[in-house]
Structures are given as C-alpha cells and as structure tokens.
Design a binder for these strands. Structure first.
Length: 482
RNA sequence: GCCCCCAUCGUCUAGUGGCCUAGGACACCACCCUUUCAAGGUGGCGGCACGGGUUCGAAUCCCGUUGGGGGUGCCA
C-alpha cells in the first residue's frame, strides 16, 4: 500500500446522515435517515453515515454500533452498495483547523479575545444584541482566551431549499459567529461544513431546526471555495403540545418501539408518510405502502412544510395492519419470540391464527393466550372468577353442569364443541353470545379472549373439564352460601 | 427582543385559480356481520385561522393580522 487511500466514489449525488452519538436513536433521526436513504438509492447515489463525535462528553464507542443497528433495523443497511461509512467527525480534526487557518489567512476570519461577559456588557451598553464585531479590525493573533470568528460579509444570503424554495437572510442579522473555541476546538458549524466538503456531499437533507444555521454554513462553503450543496429542510416532528419531540418528555427512542413489538416495516411506512403522501394513496384508500414504492416515488419537493404530530395511535394502527398482512408462518415465527421460553411452541402455533388479527403489537401476544399455558392442574383463582357477572344468571350453574356432561362425550374439535354447547343452551332458551360467557370465564379466567371453542380444542379435554368442574364448585359454594 | 419557518376535519394529509357541495387515512360514533374481543363491511360526525385585496372565479395568488413552531451558545 502506498500513498493515501482514494475513496471509490460512485457517480451519483452524495447524501449524508450525521447523527451525534447518544444512548438511543431518535425517531426524528430515523425519518431523515430514511429520506436520505430513499433518495440515495433511487438516484443511484450514496448515503454517507458520519458520526458527529466531537463533543467528547457524549461519546461512547458502543453508541456508534447502536446507531448502525438501529439503521439496519429500518432497512438502512451498511451492507448495501449505496451505504458509505461510518466516518467519524473526530477523525477530521486537522482538516477543521486547517480550514479555519485558511479563513484566517484569507482575512475571512479573525481572532477575538472578548469573553461572553464582555460581549453581554457591550450589547447592554450600546443597545444591540449579540456580538457586534468588536475585534474585526484589531488584528489580534492567537493567544489564550482567543476564539476565531467568521467575518460575515455584508449583503444577503439566499438559501435555495428543495422543500421551502428560496429563503433569504439579511447578513446584518447574522453576527460574526465563532469558528474555533478558545480551547482550540472547532465548533459544529465549521466541522460540519468541512466534513461535508471533505466527503464531497452534494445534498444536505436534515430537520428544519437547522434552517437558521444554513446561511452561516453556506457562507462557509463559499468562503472555503466550494459550491454549496443542495439544501432541504424537512419539518420537525412534534408532540401533542406541538413542541419538538424531546428525549425528556416524549417516547422517541426507536429501540423502544422495536422492543415494544412494533414492526420495522410499519415504523418505516409511518415515518415516511408523515409529511409526505405517496401518489395513488388516496385512490387506494390506504396509506400502507411498501418500501420499493416509497423509494420509487419519494421526492423532497412533495414534502409538507409544517410540523407533524408523531401520533402513536396511528402508528399502532399501521402496526396492526402489518401484523395482519403477515403470512401465518412468518407471524408464528416472529410472535413466538415474544413468548416465555417454556411455553409449548406447537400449542402456540395452533392458536396463532386466532390471535393474529387481534393485535396491535407483537408484545401483546403472551397476555392474550396465557391461559393455554398454565401448568396442567394449576389452581386458578376460581373464587375470584366465581364473582364474575357471567355467573349471575340463574341458568349459569345448571348450564355449566350440563356442558360438562356434554363435553365428556363430544368429539374434541372446535366445531363439535360449539354444536354441543348449542344443544345445551337451547334448553335454557339463551343465545350463544350469552351462553359462552360463563364457559369462557370458567375456562380462561376472563370475559374476553380468543375464540372459545378453538381455545378449548387447543387446551384439551382433560384440562377443560377440570377447569369447568372447579368453576362449578366455586360458583356453587358462593351461591349456596349466600 | 431579533431572525427564520409554518397555517385544510381532533390527528396525518390530498388539493398548485374553475373538476371542491373540499377527497382519503387514523381516531371517534352508529349499524351490519358475529362465539366474547377483534377483524371486515356500510354509514356518520368533523376542516380551508381572520381581515383585506387581485380575478369573471380563490382552499389555491398578494398584503396584513392572529396563532403556532424553530433558532438566537466558545451545544450539536
């Protein structure tokens, strides 16, 4: 190996996703990552992952892996040809400082020795706000306590934004911002731009909160002698209070949703259709779209301009839809992962078709069917069950007794169990909806649950009869005593 | 305070001057179906923030007001 490694660059546009490492992956970040990903792939370009790890206080190696894993979960795979990275901002520290020095040499930046207190004092004294350019022409050199500031030129900066059109800023309202701190480290504004230049980024797609930074960064690109990238600022995600989603108040960790049983496909679909509607969705009467369709149709120009409420209820609806659309075999396999290890998988597979359409998340699977996995002979709380209103009617106890008799003989299939119960209930002149209630409570311990006869078929004759008998005893004791 | 962005049903949105009596999705309500609960089907409730213009015609264009959000760090 000789010389430097020249990165092999694919011809298309180069997008980038530049998260700073934290303990979790923000859903808002997931959305912009997805948007960058869709564009990079469709346009035959590159998705560059850059970890902005310059803030040493929050920088742990395992967090980088967390980001890569989270991205992989939503389909942004580091194995894909369009994926490049991860790059680390910390690895470009020399370039950041070199750029600052170049700006200094060209007279486009200067040293300043004012402290924050002094700046405030001047602002107060002269009645302006922020830094007033005090050191612009003092020709200070480097020194302790000296920062490097950018000399903002006069005029207007026009940012061409793919989602917002042209946004112009009067440079007079932009102060000479800091490029290099007094401790010699570069600030985000500089590092971010230098990295983008180094990585030959052509398209910056990020959240709207960065829009006010953009004129500054654009000036930096130009001062450094480069054509600025295409900008696109997508609206932020907000909570019910219409505030930017925050880690403190809101549930924003992608990993949390994953652990709560949300499907990656549903999450991706939901995130991408927040602020963007795929063509044809209205005619189809559905907002459920596959990734290939999204990738083929997503355009920045079509993204809405206003903030969107991250509505977990709608996400849940999407998730339920995706669960129902899963092929049964796949559902059984994935849902089985949510089960306690000692639960019989075959037994689960038998009941699976009956719970698939009753779910919002995969995590709810165990609680729906736990009664099928109680150890045989385990005592249920029949005293409590006996108090259920299902046993309130005078026909309840005799019906249960008759059902037990019938079930000793009936062939053990759901259909036969239903026929047997129907035969019994006719004697009491009640409908199936009512008749099944005490049986359900006796067998499952609850008044709602998966289809009864199918459940009993899976449970087996012995255990079903045992539970029915226990219930009759408990109810009998309760009513006899009162 | 200053700078910037935004504004259609509760929510996410379609809508780019006539096709809008404003469409869809989620949520909600009712009914149907039904083995409880779901799912599914049908129907319903519900919106162009306000005020001025421009135009034969405005949800769509312009101005203003109001409201919301973002940014204003030697954080990213």
């Amino acid at each position: 190996m000789t010389g430097s490694v020249v990165p092999v660059m694919t011809p298309g546009p180069r997008f980038r996703f530049a998260p700073s490492p934290t303990g979790s992956f923000h859903v808002g970040g997931a959305r912009t990552a997805l948007q960058n990903w869709a564009l990079a792939r469709r346009l035959g370009g590159t998705f560059v992952l850059r970890i902005e790890d310059t803030d040493e206080a929050r920088n742990r190696p395992e967090w980088t892996q967390g980001i890569i894993d989270a991205l992989a979960w939503i389909g942004v795979s580091s194995d894909d040809d369009h994926f490049e990275g991860p790059h680390f901002q910390s690895g470009y520290a020399d370039a950041h400082l070199a750029a600052a020095q170049r700006l200094l040499d060209d007279g486009l930046a200067y040293y300043c020795d004012l402290t924050v207190e002094q700046i405030d004092a001047r602002a107060k004294e002269f009645g302006h706000s922020g830094y007033d350019g005090y050191s612009r022409d003092r020709n200070l050199g480097p020194g302790p306590g000296h920062v490097v500031r950018f000399r903002v030129p006069e005029g207007t900066t026009v940012v061409r934004d793919l989602v917002r059109g042209e946004v112009s800023f009067d440079n007079a309202t932009i102060e000479d911002f800091v490029l290099v701190r007094s401790n010699g480290t570069p600030v985000f504004l500089l590092a971010n731009v230098v990295d983008d230049i180094e990585m030959a980024i052509t398209d910056v797609v990020r959240a709207e909160e960065h829009l006010p930074n953009t004129p500054k960064q654009q000036m930096l690109w130009q001062a450094l002698g480069h054509e600025p990238p295409r900008w696109a600022h997508v609206p932020v995600l907000v909570n019910e209070q219409r505030k930017k989603l925050s880690k403190r108040r809101d549930k924003v960790a992608l990993e949390q949703y994953r652990d709560d049983g949300y499907l990656a496909d549903a999450m991706v679909n939901y995130l991408m259709t927040l602020g963007w509607t795929p063509p044809g969705a209205e005619a189809a009467g559905s907002e459920i779209v596959s990734w290939p369709e999204i990738e083929a149709a997503f355009r920045l120009e079509d993204v809405t301009h206003s903030p969107a409420f991250f509505d977990v209820k709608k996400l849940a609806a999407f998730n339920g839809d995706y669960i129902r659309r899963m092929p049964l075999a796949e559902f059984v396999e994935r849902a089985a992962q949510e089960l306690p290890i000692d639960w019989d998988r075959d037994r689960f597979a038998a009941i699976a078709p009956h719970i698939q359409e009753r779910l919002t998340t995969l995590r709810e699977v165990p609680e729906k069917i736990d009664f099928l996995f109680w150890p045989v002979g385990a005592p249920m709380d029949y005293e409590a069950a006996a108090r259920d209103k299902a046993f309130g009617a005078e026909w309840a106890l005799p019906l249960l007794t008759d059902v037990i008799a019938a079930y000793r003989e009936a062939p053990w299939t759901a259909d036969d169990l239903k026929v047997s119960l129907e035969a019994v209930m006719e004697r009491y002149e009640i409908k199936l909806g009512k008749a099944q209630a005490p049986v359900r409570v006796a067998v499952t311990g609850r008044s709602v649950g998966p289809p009864l006869f199918e459940s009993m078929e899976v449970l087996g004759r012995d255990e079903t009869l045992r539970r029915l008998s226990m219930a009759v005893e408990a109810v009998g004791a309760a009513s006899g005593g009162g």
